[in-house]
Every structure is written in structure tokens, then in C-alpha cells.
């Protein structure tokens, strides 16, 4: 199958793990890794035979064939990158909190964003909890959804630590705008236990229609959907009912591509990003390629 060329800007932990995931993809071609200094991440990519550059976004803009760009830099940098990528007709998948484009959680709202050129990946907690929050809301109508994400201290990088409010505020917003709860709230806890604990996420929903059977089925189906792109996503505690309150707990074990398995939080946001890229590659870009080829055929004829 033909592959779509992609680039990653920002060869840190997230960028490097993304690279491994893209390299495994059947429809994405890991074309370029760029940074702004000759970092470990750049050297690692070069060693793996990937084209690299330290000219940041410029190197990406110089290549017309690159159609999808993962931006794993920071919010400030992405605000600069976004208009440039847009102008160059490249799809941006934004791993930062910049939120230039709409939030996307692939199993929930990707299909509804068919014309977008810039996708924001919310937060790790958002990727882990919005699917369940949505699954409950779609059958039970949630007036309030609250999530608690617990990640191991070791997997919380300096960016998360310095901006912990961004996590709670962004995730809460996604519970409302993507999952559909009337009101959302998010809490994040860092746990330093050693060996590190897997990421756990508790999703509480206060619902208008506590139909247990429908909620159970909806949640089960959603877990299977997420497992299609995050194999380590598991239902830890199936829906527990207490009047109009529904409690679900999921855990995320990372794939261990580049980051350790306990970093399920980083794994799920990356896996979701690659899922977005793959769906766009197959459903949007390949079709464009196909229709170009067809119109070329016609001209010939």
C-alpha cells in the first residue's frame, strides 16, 4: 500500500515514541524528524535511518510530499507553526496544549471533523477518559462528569508539572465539548510508588437515565473501540451504579515502544495521534491521491 509522508517536529520523549509508532504504521511513512539542536532524539532518529534536520519547521515546509505533521514541541512554538503549516496545506496534529484546532478523541469525534487541518490531542487524561464519558453520556445523558487520572510520578515530565492547571482545565473542557457532559471536572494525581503504577482513570458520571444494561453495553463497546489503537487500554472496574451515579475505572498500560510500559499516559496520547493520522491518510489523503490519478487518466484519455 502507498504511504503518506509524515514529519515530527520535536524529538523529545513524545516525539521519539511517536516515531516508533509511525514506523510500525501500514499507511504512514516516517519521513522526517526535526528539532532545533543536535539532541539525543535527533541522533536516535538518524541512527534508525530516518532523515533528520535541526532547522525545525523550515525543514518540514521545504518538503511538499509531507502531508501530516506531528507537532511535539510546546504550546508557544505551535502557535507559530500552525499558520505556516496551514498555509502549506499540511495537516497538523498538535500534541501541545496550544489548542489552535478542535480537540480530537479519535473514537469519539474524528469523523465529525472531516474538513479540519489542525487537530489538538487534548491531554493524556482526556484521551483515556473522554471515550468512557462519551459512552455513558450517549445512552444515559450526563449532567455532570468528573474524572480522576492518576499517573506515575516518573511519567510526568517537566511540562506537565510546570503547567498542571492546564491539564485539569483542558480535560474538563473536553469532557463538556467532546464527551457531551453538561458540566465537566478533572483531577490529576501523581503517585511516586516504586515500581511505578500503571495509569488509572476514574470516570464518574451523574446521569439522567441510569439504564444499567445500556450503560454497560455502551461502555464495553467503547473499550473495544479504544483497544483498536491502544492495546493496553483495559476496563479495570466495570460500571458501578449508585442511584444516578455511574463509576467506571480504566487503566492504561503503555505499548513500551520507546517509553516504559508504565507510561500509559504518554502512550495513549501518542497512539491516539497516530490513529488520527492513519485515518486521515486512508480516508482523506489517499482518496485525493486516487482522484488525482483518475483525473490524470481522464486527461490522457
Amino acid at each position: 500500500m502507498a504511504k503518506i509522508d509524515v514529519a515530527i517536529i520535536g524529538p523529545g520523549n513524545i516525539g521519539s515514541d511517536l516515531m516508533y509508532k509511525v514506523m510500525r504504521s501500514s499507511c504512514l511513512n516516517m519521513k522526517l524528524m526535526t528539532g532545533i539542536v543536535l539532541s539525543e532524539g535527533i541522533k536516535r532518529a538518524a541512527k534508525m535511518g530516518i532523515e533528520t534536520s535541526i532547522n525545525g519547521i523550515e525543514a518540514v515546509l521545504a518538503q511538499d510530499d509531507i502531508r501530516i505533521v506531528f507537532d511535539a514541541t510546546g504550546a508557544k512554538a505551535h502557535l507559530e507553526h500552525a499558520p505556516l503549516l496551514q498555509k502549506a496545506g499540511k495537516i497538523a496534529i498538535d500534541m501541545t496544549p496550544a489548542a489552535v484546532g478542535p480537540y480530537v478523541v479519535p473514537c469519539v469525534n474524528l469523523d465529525a471533523l472531516s474538513q479540519e487541518m489542525n487537530f489538538n490531542m487534548v491531554t493524556c487524561g482526556g484521551q483515556a477518559t473522554v471515550p468512557i464519558a462519551y459512552a455513558v453520556n450517549r445512552v444515559a445523558d450526563s449532567s455532570y462528569t468528573e474524572i480522576v487520572s492518576c499517573i506515575s510520578s516518573k511519567s510526568a515530565g517537566p511540562g506537565t508539572r510546570a503547567n498542571i492547571d492546564e491539564f485539569t482545565e483542558t480535560t474538563a473542557k473536553a469532557l463538556e465539548t467532546v464527551a457531551g457532559a453538561d458540566r465537566g471536572k478533572a483531577v490529576i494525581i501523581l503517585n511516586p510508588a516504586n515500581p511505578p503504577l500503571l495509569m488509572t482513570n476514574t470516570i464518574y458520571s451523574i446521569v439522567k437515565n441510569p439504564d444499567q444494561e445500556r450503560i454497560n453495553r455502551s461502555v464495553r463497546e467503547m473499550v473495544e473501540e479504544v483497544q483498536k489503537y491502544v492495546p493496553g487500554y483495559r476496563l479495570r472496574t466495570p460500571p458501578i451504579f449508585d442511584g444516578n451515579k455511574v463509576t467506571v475505572i480504566v487503566e492504561v498500560e503503555g505499548a513500551g515502544d520507546f517509553l516504559p510500559k508504565y507510561s500509559g499516559n504518554l502512550d495513549i496520547i501518542n497512539a491516539a495521534a497516530v490513529r488520527v493520522a492513519e485515518k486521515l491518510a486512508v480516508e482523506r489523503l489517499m482518496k485525493e491521491k486516487g482522484s488525482d490519478a483518475m483525473s490524470a487518466e481522464k486527461e490522457k484519455g
Partner: peptide, 18 residues
């Protein structure tokens, strides 16, 4: 035993369920 820290009240249900 699980090394739960302040704020992890949600794990009380997890443990009780288990």
C-alpha cells in the same frame, strides 16, 4: 499496601470492588 497517596479517594472503590 498499594502506596496510594492523598487525593486517590477513587481507588477506595477500586479496592473495595476487588
Amino acid at each position: 499496601k498499594r502506596g496510594m497517596v492523598g487525593g486517590q479517594e477513587d481507588m477506595i472503590v477500586d479496592v473495595a470492588y476487588e
